[in-house]
Amino acid sequence: MKNDNNWEPKIVTFLCNWCSYAGADLAGVSRLQYPPNIRVIRVPCSGRVNPFYIIKVLQNGIDGVLVSGCHPGDCHYISGNLVARRKFALLKSFLEYIGIEPGRVQFSWVSAAEGGRFVDIIEKVTSEIKKLGPSKKLSKWQKEAEYIKEILK
């Protein structure tokens, strides 16, 4: 499956309402084009993103996750993005520990004026996850599918 050129990853993107979501809107207003693989979840602040969501997303068979908030110092809620940063620093080592490839879960800062940067990041994240192939580690459905395939052989 990894070598299948037609395979397209599905990526869940958590965007904070005030910076990154606005940056994504600006990319649209500017008609910048990027791959259609991301599905956006709007949250008030990157600090709202519970690490559990990310695990859950991977369990649901989604291939990658991007969390994007305001640049440090720009947070609409003063310091929410810093709370997020601390949390994800820990999550990162946890993901590494349980064997999730680095690059499958990514974090970035995008301001409301950075439509171009948003596109660059989406392109980069999409191509990196595409290279990694489908997420198998946590996905219950993937495992079941493979199990069924195995039985049917």
């Binding site: 949250v43 600090g47 709202r48 519970n50 690490p51 969501y53 859950k56 809620y77 929410g80 949390k87």
Partner: peptide, 27 residues
């Protein structure tokens, strides 16, 4: 902002309009 919600160790806080169950329902 929800910073308290995602930081709570006991999962004792939720944010109305952006509840865990609501976000998870979308996910």
């Amino acid at each position: 902002c929800g910073a308290c919600v995602s930081s709570c160790r006991a999962n004792a806080i939720d944010l109305k309009g952006f509840k865990d169950e609501q976000i998870l329902a979308a996910l």
